[in-house]
Design a protein around this nucleic acid. Structure first.
Lengths: 326, 326
DNA sequence: ATCGTTTGCGCAATCGTTTGCGGTTAAAAA
DNA sequence: TTTTTAACCGCAAACGATTGCGCAAACGAT
């Protein structure tokens, strides 16, 4: 594997200038069809592949987009990554994956890394510590579009790809009361998260509407949820339970085993197939969210480089349908 | 957010040359301590951050390493990514994540992408289609170290981070027969995979040693495994089962529900907490594997740039301990 | 034949850093 | 005082590609 052929090599081989080669490769109108073909043939012959680093330096771009997530767990995010990777690749982008570990400083450092590597766009699910987005707000102005997904903030100035958290939770809990549950447990994640607040709001609304009481349990991680649920279930006997995420659903699997309790959750679809109890769930597809978010980002990137209009931030709401299992 | 400060800006501000700045920033011996400090202070003041792209062009490096995996699922790989990301970041590297989708052509294209982006090293878990590694073999010669993890090949010419598949499977099945199981089911993944062959070999050895018969079931995905297991269990009543991976374990959760069957598996640790039956498992930590593999890769990168010796490929075997649950 | 356009291509600067080499100054040795 | 030798620093050429500008040949029209 000798040194990689450069644009210069093919220029030399054809005895033309590098600028002609550069233009020829991308079908610049200044270059004749014949010349273009000649160049491309020779490029193939020499097994030429453009050096994105060099091009990136000149064009201040990199063909790389970044995905920043709180933490890589087995829940939800793998699907997102998969979706993002897919559309990134289809569009010639590569994917840089960064974790914020739910820490603001970490998130800021990640943004800096993105700048250092001249990523062309950023996909981010905010850490549960970020209430203020000063570290992000100027990014679009310097040519780096940002799109939020899943974990966003109120009145996001950026595009966001989410589900209608409040409505989904509302529907879920409404479903529980319609089934006749009188003693409902609402299991929620980290309280700082907007999605938690929204889902809680939806749940409460359904409860108020039906005039039933409920117990609320908060747990911000799988382990804490496992403990909290085991504890809760040892002294309570709910006949209905709402689980706002896959992580909580997984944590409930064993504690809920053998209990006679209706369960409704929000899930990416896999955990319900593994878990220990029958349930209904609203299908919150990480894969689709990843694809939508990445598509939107790629679109923004194109817009900004093609000099298109700067359309206002868009809120993309994924439709969530109910599934039941067992 | 005005334009980012460059080395040139700080040179101008201090009225010195860019080369001095460049050297000062990295404590080159040619530059006096005082000057270095001056430069660094000004750098901080101007909020200077090096442009990796430019440096990469010059040094033909990128501070990026690639992780190529067959597919991003919720099983095993998230832990690996997490481990890799962690040590990558600690060492100033960023992580490019690529999927081969268990397709050789795809894998080749990924390698090409890596070249295009001048990644400094590649971490790869081979697709189940790659028996031949011609597309990888020349990479180290062109300065890009490669380390295999999990899915490798016989007599790997590269470093590899694995577990002792045969022994672990042997221990697992031995455990089953020691518990008195007479009717054992061995559930395995894709047959092309070396890890499958090795684990199968270990299992068979334990069976032969104990002189017990067993049924072997192969399934290469979660869904196929679910079906195969449901099917198998509808007509058979094993008293012991070996599951070679988390994916299979998860797939067994519901089919195995209520059955009285001893289970031993190999797992990253999470699925056993969710699953529907008591079991023992050998803890195959994706996180540790990711960290070890990344450390080894970073070390190789350092070696090759610092001009160190090219030590022979190493086989790093992660120690696996048994855990039991429920 | 003359002038104005295209068409097709090359020159050279540029992106931000790194680095080999050469030059200057001041301290140390003679 | 002269010479050696460090210690410091700047010049300019890379790295590989992109791109504004200029320029020659070819063409059409007058």
């Amino acid at each position: 594997m000798q040194k990689r052929a450069t644009i210069k090599d093919i220029a030399k081989a054809l005895d033309i200038s590098v600028s002609t080669v550069s233009r020829g490769l991308r079908d610049h109108p200044d270059i004749s069809k014949d010349m273009c073909q000649l160049i491309k043939d020779k490029a193939k012959e020499l097994n030429y592949h453009p050096n994105h680093i060099a091009a990136g330096l000149r064009k201040r771009s990199s063909k790389i987009i970044a995905l920043i997530i709180p933490e890589i767990s087995m829940f939800f995010f793998p699907s997102v990554i998969k979706g993002v990777e897919e559309v990134a690749r289809e569009n010639g982008y590569q994917l840089l994956v960064l974790q914020s570990n739910d820490d603001l400083e970490h998130e800021k450092r990640n943004i800096q890394m993105c700048l250092d590597h001249s990523v062309e766009g950023i996909l981010i699910s905010l850490s549960n510590k970020t209430s203020n987005i000063d570290h992000l707000i100027n990014l679009p102005a310097s040519g780096i579009p940002v799109v939020f997904f899943d974990k966003s903030i109120e009145n996001s100035p950026f595009d966001e790809v989410v589900i209608d958290d409040e409505d989904v939770a509302f529907q879920a809990v409404k479903n529980l009361v319609h089934e006749g549950c009188k003693n409902i447990a609402i299991i929620l994640g980290n309280e700082n998260l907007l999605i938690t607040k929204r889902r809680e709001r939806g749940a409460r609304l359904a409860l108020v509407n039906a005039n039933v009481e409920a117990t609320f349990v908060y747990a911000e991680s799988f382990n804490k949820a496992q403990i909290a649920l085991a504890d809760y279930l040892s002294s309570h006997h709910p006949d209905g339970m709402f689980l706002m995420s896959d992580e909580l659903m997984a944590a409930a699997s064993q504690p809920l085993s053998g209990k006679d309790c209706l369960v409704v959750g929000i899930s990416d679809g896999m955990i319900p197939e593994i878990v220990n109890f029958p349930l209904k769930y609203f299908y919150h597809s990480g894969f689709e969210i990843g694809k939508l978010a990445a598509s939107k980002l790629v679109h923004r990137i194109l817009m900004s480089t093609e000099g298109g209009q700067n359309t206002p931030a868009e809120r993309i709401i994924l439709d969530v349908k109910m599934h039941s299992l067992h």
